[in-house]
Design a protein around this nucleic acid. Structure first.
Length: 558
RNA sequence: GCCCUCGUAGCAUAAUGGAUAGUGCAGGACUCUUCUAAGGUCUUGAUGUAGGUUCGAUUCCUACCGAGGGCACCA
């Protein structure tokens, strides 16, 4: 039994001796924010003081008296209003340091052991820009996928892309109209074509008719000219996205397209007239019966909407891959939409619907207002990455990295991903160019730099033939106590789908390490150096695994 | 109008109902003849308003104010 469970157990037993029955699982036990308050702390006495008819501190004293000194704990004290604080023994902390050094999978757990989980994220649309909103979805989705993986799940990454629908018709119209359908397809300005088509659709009746016609032709593939533009544009777009995924470090197992979910969805809707009804020529689901709102599934022109395709997608996913949980990561703007689709799905395919979880995150916004690819008011993912890479080049040139261009790009990816993953995912990010370009302080490169430093020390220790050795009696500093928390932080972040909890933790590990590094010579020629090297090694593995979970590259040298 | 998020220093943010509300940027003062200064040390400064629940509320509940999103043929 691990220390956490055994402490909870002891407290529960003590309580029952005092006539208070609490399940061990329900015993509060946390890492106090301040290390001076111990390695574990319980506020159980404050919670049950009233029931026991005793003052909190007195109850805490009684609880402590009843269980004596647990294994791995050097000191138990009653503090503050009645907290019970536990301090781990140097031996217990040394064990954490040793595990961190020796286990590749340090920090991993069994929270999702044996489960198969599909995570869908990024979801850009061919014929449109890959903008910074997709970067946000990718960073959060990838990190959630890795948290699941690290907690023992078999994870399948999925990407769902809208390769049919009005946006495609608008882009094709733009390409035709402006004569951009010839030449090198790699430089097709698809984003601009879409924006021109979208504008014309709203202001020009004739254009609207043409675009609606193209939309139908894309579905039924009846026009060879349209087919040709469509096929080339789709291919160019997908190849372009793939180059971005490579930089970001995402490898998808499944690609789903709206062109393959549309027909399926229509079939599902038609098969369930008891669920969907006709209204003004369209087929809708009346969400009001679930406390939601009505949404159109098939338009009066007979075309499937996104809602219908989502049903088809769920069925297709289930057919391709049997999973225990299917997570879809999207921006918050789709939350209400998703609730309605799920309500309908529960009636059409209850078994599949039961496994689906929607994880929503905030939106990437501009100070001036909403980002919109319809008006061309977007920052593309590749332009941001390119700017960041450029900003990182100056310092990278002075670095010890073998491939300085590669380092600049890794730093760029770290900077953008960190900015996204540092805050609770429910909040919007107001995109600030200057902030995004900053490579100092509370940032991705800060973590990378600390990691590179640990590598440099370990390398140097090897040159000096200093073998790392954890001293069982010297693990009293703050760093080992802090490192000990890593696996529990990972588990907590996993259970809440909140990568930012890990981000803040890693920042603190790096900060404590940097501070220690500044005031302590590690390779100091004394016998104590062996222990300090071991500690550096443990920090190194913690940062490495932590960065991996965040999907942030960890260059060996900087 | 209804529904969903979010309101913490000048700005951006953290906090599992708990202990002195943690951090970065910006501002001010220091710090490279010592293992990487993308670093370190010191310093000013914050919980939208009004109630409620609780031994204890940034956290939970109610109302209000403010920002963003959604609400029928877009995705």
């Amino acid at each position: 039994m691990d220390i956490r469970s055994s402490l909870k157990d002891s407290i529960a037993k003590s309580l029952s001796g005092l006539g208070i029955v609490v399940e061990p699982d329900k015993v509060p036990l946390e890492h106090p924010a301040e290390l001076r308050n111990g390695d574990y702390s319980s506020g159980v006495a404050l919670q049950y003081a009233k029931q026991a008819g005793t003052a909190p501190r007195a109850l805490a004293e009684k609880i402590v008296a009843a269980f004596g000194s647990p294994e791995g704990v050097s000191k138990v004290e009653v503090a503050g209003a009645g907290f019970i604080n536990f301090y781990l023994t140097p031996g217990a902390l040394a064990e954490a340091v040793e595990t961190a050094r020796k286990e590749d999978m340090w920090g991993s757990g069994t929270f999702n052991a044996g489960k198969k989980i599909m995570v869908e994220y990024t979801d850009p649309n061919p014929f449109k820009e890959f903008h910074i909103g997709h970067l946000m979805s990718n960073a959060i989705g990838e990190s959630i996928a890795r948290l699941m993986q690290f907690s023992g799940a078999d994870v399948k990454r999925a990407n769902y892309q809208g390769d049919v629908g009005p946006h495609v018709a608008k882009a094709i119209w733009g390409l035709q109209k402006f004569g951009l359908n010839v030449g090198d397809k790699k430089v097709w300005p698809l984003g601009r074509a879409y924006s021109q088509g979208a504008t014309a659709y709203e202001s020009d009746e004739a254009a609207k008719e043409q675009i609606d016609k193209i939309n139908t032709q894309v579905y039924d593939r009846s026009d060879p000219v349209i087919n040709n533009i469509y096929d080339q544009g789709r291919e160019a777009s997908l190849a372009h996205f793939e180059s971005i995924y490579k930089i970001l470090g995402t490898k998808f197992d499944f690609y789903f397209f709206e062109s393959e979910t549309a027909a399926r969805g229509v079939e599902l809707v038609k098969k369930h007239p008891e669920v969907f009804e006709e209204s003004d020529g369209a087929i809708v689901y009346k969400g009001e019966k679930d406390g939601l709102h009505t949404r159109v599934f098939i338009t009066s022109k007979g075309l499937p909407t996104y809602e219908t395709k989502e049903l088809g997608l769920a069925e297709l996913k289930a057919e391709k891959c049997t999973v225990d949980v299917s997570i879809t990561v999207t921006a918050h703007e789709q939350s209400d939409y998703f609730k309605v689709v799920l309500a309908a799905m529960r009636k059409v395919m209850p078994d599949i619907a039961a496994k689906i979880e929607h994880v929503s995150h905030g939106m990437m916004r501009f100070a001036e207002g909403k980002m919109s690819s319809r008006t061309g008011n977007v920052i593309t993912g590749e332009s941001l990455l390119a700017d960041l890479t450029e900003a990182a080049k100056e310092r990278a040139a002075e670095s010890r990295a073998d491939d300085k261009d590669a380092l600049a790009q890794q730093v760029a990816v770290a900077a953008i991903k960190y900015q996204i993953l540092r805050q609770a995912s429910g909040k919007d990010i107001i995109f600030d160019r200057e902030r995004a370009l900053s490579l100092e302080g509370d940032s991705g490169p800060y973590l990378q730099y600390a990691y590179a430093r640990t590598n440099a020390i370990i390398e140097k220790a090897k040159e000096q033939n200093i073998a790392a050795k954890t001293d069982l009696n010297a693990t009293t500093g703050e760093l080992p106590r802090f490192l000990h928390r890593f696996p529990e932080i990972v588990e907590y972040a996993t259970s809440l789908h909140e990568p930012h909890l890990l981000t803040s933790y890693l920042l603190e590990v790096a900060a404590r390490f940097n501070s220690w590094y500044a005031q302590e010579q590690i390779l100091d020629g004394t016998a104590g150096a062996a222990h300090k090297v071991a500690l550096v090694d443990a920090v190194r593995r913690t940062l490495k695994n932590g960065l991996w979970i965040l999907g942030i590259p960890a260059p060996e040298r900087m």
